[in-house]
């Protein structure tokens, strides 16, 4: 039981009157990559955005069920949301660097958590950029505005920014959907490396990507988790007819 990152039972979520998740039960293991696939509007983004409570920002959002991270209820009144979001980092669909320097983009998360010593900041900024495989490309112009970077570089900067605050889990919400194939390959390679130290959940529209990067896969359809298991099993011998139809491209 100790070796479980997320333990979720009967999770239901809705925006206003529209129910988008209809009882999801799933267990996610640490130091593995879990890919969530499914057609648009199936609830996979809502699912992943509930895990760091970023959906709390949407006023009409409602959620119920047992949603545990490391045996603690994420939605408990006592939960410190700020600390939760530091521990469970998130990378978004569209690269969203702050309109500041590359350095400041990464130092921001550290500063708001009380790091002030310049040497420490420098060290963590460099380490984070190295982990995100961006250091060699930007080390000479850390003062440059992050918006001048290419889309793929911006996304890796966003990953570095997330890594800087030392999270345990990383949520990727379609991180490559706005990127070209070369940048996509770089990010996939990165995810593969990061698996050793982090629990990773990735939402993707791209089934080849899911097959390439993940250890476990979940197939979402109309707010339900149709199938969940080892990626290899799911892509070679899907148990459910709907999963088979989807991954063979018969719909969606």
């Amino acid at each position: 039981m100790n070796n479980v990152a997320f333990n979720i039972t009967r999770m239901r979520a809705s925006y206003g009157n529209k129910e988008v998740l209809k009882g999801i039960t799933i267990t996610i293991l640490p130091n593995s990559v879990t890919a969530l696939i499914g057609p648009s509007g199936c609830g996979k983004s809502t699912f992943i955005r509930s895990l760091n409570r970023i959906n709390d920002l949407i006023p009409s959002f409602r959620i119920s069920g047992d949603i545990l991270y490391r045996q603690k209820d994420i939605y408990d009144q006592e939960t410190d949301v700020v600390e939760l979001r530091r521990r469970i980092g998130m990378v978004f669909q569209k690269p969203n660097p702050f309109p500041k320097s590359i350095y400041e983009n990464i130092a921001y998360g550290l500063r708001i958590h009380g790091f002030t010593i310049k040497e420490t900041l420098d060290e963590i900024v460099e380490a984070s950029l190295k982990k995100a495989a961006l250091w060699d490309e930007v080390k000479d112009n850390l003062k440059q505005n992050a918006l001048t970077l290419s889309g793929g570089q911006q996304q890796r900067l966003c990953i570095a920014r997330t890594l800087a605050t030392q999270p345990e889990a990383l949520l990727f919400d379609e991180p490559c959907s706005a990127l070209d194939p070369i940048s996509t390959a770089k990010i996939e390679e990165l995810i593969h490396h990061l698996k050793k130290s982090y629990t990773i959940i990735i939402v993707t529209h791209n089934m080849q990507q899911a097959a390439r990067v993940s250890d476990y896969s979940g197939f979402f359809l109309l707010g339900e988790l149709v199938e969940f298991g080892k990626t290899q099993d799911m892509f070679t011998a899907p148990k459910d007819k709907r999963t088979e139809d989807y991954i063979t491209g018969r719909f969606g």
Partner: peptide, 8 residues
């Protein structure tokens, strides 16, 4: 979102 996601 980016700011909240790093725990701001």
């Amino acid at each position: 979102e980016a700011s909240y996601a790093v725990g701001a």
